[in-house]
């Protein structure tokens, strides 16, 4: 009995110390909370941390106490107390933890429902991942963007997909994440609560430049967001090449193709239009409109020598319209003229 009191005091002391630390320090363990979902996640995580702190104290407390009090004295070759177990105790420490984990599972189910249920008046943003780019489309407004703009305090449903491999949409301050899977569209609902700048970080290994598959996020007041929408919906003022430059940005082309002649994963675009080049199979072609179109839609068909081991996403044909292709080709052609 004396021992049980001693160990209980030790466990209580460790537990209270851990709880006191959690009380002041929990928020510092995590990024700021910037979405409604983040409050649910942190509440459930926080509750689990308190239980974890107690269980940690329980086991470590018993162990520490035993090391000190039940250590073998020098010269004592005897054995410990002889008992084989205690069925009541076993039942208790099976049933009580069962209850606790079931409680958390039920609670977690409710929270999951809270953070995934659609509200009316959602903003729809189509998010397309590709190696190694994020593209954001606002289908209600006909806008495409390389940066994600969101209005504060309004639920947005991100409809995630990918054109090549699996990516995962994650803004740590919003907490929740969802994979962007090729061939499927999955929703992720977020209601931002804090205006400011954040970063989407791809959370699923997606090849060479996975670390740098980032995109800026800007959460704005509703009026600012509406103003941004208006500015984007104005018809393009520049020519076809300028539209193409925008498309190259949004679709991540420039992640692999430089426009200043520097080396990168894919061939540079500077001054290639109208050039004669050798292909990987040894044949020689002239880079013209038809070749560029074909290479965007089916990049594996005519690979330029020296780039045999690079694979460009094979699926741009599905996300780019005929007009888009014209604009991109016009943009690349405009880079060719600069050289002369």
């Amino acid at each position: 009995m004396k021992h049980l009191l001693g160990v209980s005091a030790l466990i209580a002391a460790i537990t209270l110390a851990a709880w006191a630390w959690l009380g002041t320090g929990f928020d510092k363990l995590l990024p700021i909370r910037a979405s409604e979902e983040s409050f649910y996640v942190d509440r459930l995580l926080g509750m689990q941390f308190y239980v974890i702190a107690f269980l940690f104290a329980l086991i470590i407390g018993f162990m520490l106490y035993s090391f000190i009090v039940f250590r073998r004295r020098p010269g004592d070759d005897g054995d410990g107390d002889h008992f084989h177990g205690n069925t009541t105790l076993e039942v208790v420490w099976t049933v009580v933890p069962l209850g606790v984990v079931l409680y958390f599972a039920v609670l977690g189910t409710g929270y999951l429902s809270d953070i995934t249920s659609p509200e009316t008046d959602e903003l729809v943003v189509e998010v397309t991942g590709s190696q190694w780019n994020w593209r954001f489309d606002y289908p209600e407004y006909g806008i495409s963007s390389a940066e994600l703009f969101l209005p504060v305090n309004r639920q947005t449903v991100l409809e995630l997909t990918s054109i090549d491999v699996i990516h995962s949409f994650w803004v740590p301050e919003f907490r929740v994440k969802q994979d962007a899977v090729p061939g499927m569209v999955h929703p992720l609902r977020i209601t931002p609560t804090e205006t400011g700048a954040y970063v989407v970080r791809c959370a699923e290994i997606c090849g060479l430049d996975h670390s740098y598959m980032l995109a800026d996020v800007s959460v704005m007041e509703t009026a600012d967001f509406d103003a941004w929408l208006q500015s984007q919906m104005a018809p393009p003022t520049g020519g076809l090449a300028e539209v193409g430059a925008e498309l190259a940005q949004v679709n991540g082309c420039l992640g692999c193709h430089s426009i200043d002649g520097s080396e990168n994963t894919g061939p540079t675009w500077l001054g290639i239009y109208g050039e004669e080049v050798y292909l990987a199979d040894g044949s020689e072609i002239i880079i013209d409109d038809a070749y560029l179109r074909a290479s965007i839609i089916d990049p594996g068909s005519q690979i330029v020598a020296g780039f045999e081991n690079v694979s460009m996403p094979a699926n741009f044909g599905a996300v780019l319209s005929d007009a888009d292709l014209d604009a991109l080709v016009a943009y690349i052609a405009s880079l060719g003229k600069d050289k002369e």
């Binding site: 995580l45 689990q48 599972a105 995962s168």
Partner: peptide
Amino acid sequence: GTVTTDLYLHDT
């Protein structure tokens, strides 16, 4: 194990 919190912790 609880889905809500795993949506944050997964792949970290």
